[in-house]
Design a protein around this nucleic acid. Structure first.
Lengths: 336, 336
DNA sequence: TTGTAGGCGTTATCAG
DNA sequence: CTGATAACGCCTACAA
């Protein structure tokens, strides 16, 4: 009936523990947060009281008082793609070991939504922020800079990141794949890329690099973001008639690449002889499919770990804004 | 130098807004939380002040005072698998629309770790809890029941769920797949399942059902959890010599099924003629691979949505603990 | 419709 | 090493 019937999780509070242990609340607090500042016997008595009462500290109250929420907000476009769930997973594990929890917000692929999520999450006073990509709207950038909140941006690079950055240059990836194809003797090229900023960066840089060498891009197609296997299949259908007898195609993700490869096989287009395919992301699928898929490997889990480290360092006081460029590597497999 | 140099995100607080707008802090609070209880002109003035100062309400303080954190904790084994990232994604979106944020915690596949995560997250005083599976340790079950915290358990069923439950019976899935194979005329069977409780449930129920019909399970193998494509490939290697000329194999996930299928093809075992394969999860890969994969479809995103709805209903006051059984369905494709 | 008083549960700070 | 006191910033409850 009454909403108050919903009892609070732990009616027992620090004063209850203090009373039972015969100490001041502050001492209980110390036993929990700075145990070395309490004498062993006192600590033991307090711990017994905590145990006996089943006391669970209220981090909300603690956070209000200490102005540290021990919580980090992570905002990524989606966790449905290995591109982002790998770093989120490792980030969450890493900061968890340092006693931080992660508030997860999904931004989709529009800046408006991301802005809204950032604003909303700031109301929770996170101790730090993980953001995807390095493009912020001016208003948000200003907000973040003024707040002096530790921020780590991942999966991209920028000349002037908001704060800490752990990423790589997507345009460089596009150029590297272009060179890889060119060096392998290819003369005709195609590119399929998702419409998110990073996918576009990889795809367009690939095409530009090819053209800058005076070579033809016979097909260039933008896909939805996030894109999946079906998008890759459909895209290959769409460009099939434009393909030269021997074409090298760069796809903005391994899912798209796998879809293209599957559709090619169904159409009797031999991979890699008639169509060489390179994906991006090094998802497990690429290593385990047959033929296996050439791809660009970026260690998403490593990015998450490094991002966690850098952000935590920033939170505890390093004034320097770290900037870590993580490597990428073309893994050559059977599809090229 | 000093840790206090790290300025709080928004030094401007409700009293600042109130002063600027010439009203009491409580009125500002009302404009934000219950706008219809404030006259239009007052509200307009307050909103202008909020805008001008860039005020961001402090939900930590609000939560302490109101005893409602507007936050829900979600604990899943991993978000690296579509099995769990789909529900988490849709759950997060759904509760987000109702103004709730999601605190994400990863439990791995051990109960100890899950217990620890639950305890840790309770310190944040979530308004609700999303848990995976329906098996809780006695201590945790007691803790949750006593706390009267709204809890939704997903992806499994149980006779006595902790509170709300949105799931399905994994053993029933195993039996259904067994019947499907039997009805298709199969006479020899195998099963590969991940060692998590639900994978084990599906796999063992499959094997038991087969045997209860007097039919042979020629191979039964447990895989790590979470298991992946490589595990599926390796498992098929291991059991290859035990397979009858025509065997039907049930895999505890589509990744395992895809791995088994790939390995079979490499060994010249024809799918589906010599080896019929059914997976679980209906990941996109199964629909788009070639041959496409027969699987058991469970709508993970739908589970997340329904879980959000049910939990939110519970949070705002419904005393009834809902129990929603979601359907599963065998999707027949080329691999059987 | 608006305001006042008091407290939510914890920790910073300073004193002993 | 331990304790007393005063916030932290907001909202519930009640009053005007």
């Amino acid at each position: 009936m009454n909403e108050r019937s919903r009892a609070s999780v732990a009616p027992v509070k620090i004063t209850d523990v203090a009373a039972l242990a015969g100490v001041a609340p502050m001492t209980v607090s110390r036993v929990i947060n700075t145990p070395d500042r309490v004498s062993a016997p006192t600590a033991a008595r307090v711990r017994a009281a905590i145990e006996q009462l089943g006391y669970v500290p209220n981090l909300i109250a603690g956070g209000l008082s200490s102005r540290r929420s021990r919580m980090i907000a992570a905002i990524v476009p989606t966790i449905a793609s290995p591109m982002f769930n790998a770093p989120v997973q490792s980030f969450t594990d890493a900061v968890g070991k340092a006693g931080y929890h992660v508030m997860l917000a999904l931004s989709g692929y529009t800046q408006e939504h991301e802005d809204a999520q950032i604003r909303a999450v700031l109301a929770r006073r996170p101790d730090g922020l993980l953001l995807t990509g390095a493009r912020r709207s001016p208003a948000i950038r200003k907000l973040l800079l003024e707040s002096q909140l530790p921020v780590v941006e991942i999966w991209d690079t920028a000349d002037e990141p908001t704060d800490v950055l752990v990423g790589f240059d997507h345009r460089e990836v596009g150029r590297a794949v272009a060179d890889f194809f060119i060096n392998a003797g290819h003369t005709h090229f195609a590119v399929l890329y998702a419409s998110d900023p990073r996918g576009v960066g990889r795809g367009q840089a690939f095409a530009e690099h090819i053209r800058s060498r005076g070579l033809p891009v016979v097909a260039e197609k933008m896909l939805p973001a996030p894109s999946n296997i079906a998008d890759g299949r459909n895209a290959l259908k769409d460009i099939a008639d434009k393909l030269a007898p021997r074409t090298a195609v760069f796809c903005s993700s391994d899912l798209v690449a796998y879809g293209a490869m599957t559709e090619a096989r169904l159409r009797g287009i031999d991979v890699p002889r008639q169509l060489a395919i390179c994906g991006f992301g090094d998802f497990e699928l690429s290593a385990q499919s047959h033929p296996s898929g050439t791809t660009v490997r970026v260690d998403g889990a490593e990015i998450g770990r490094v991002a966690a480290e850098a952000l935590l360092a920033r939170i505890v006081g390093t004034d320097e804004a770290a900037r870590v460029m993580v490597p990428f590597e073309i893994i050559v497999r059977q599809s090229t």
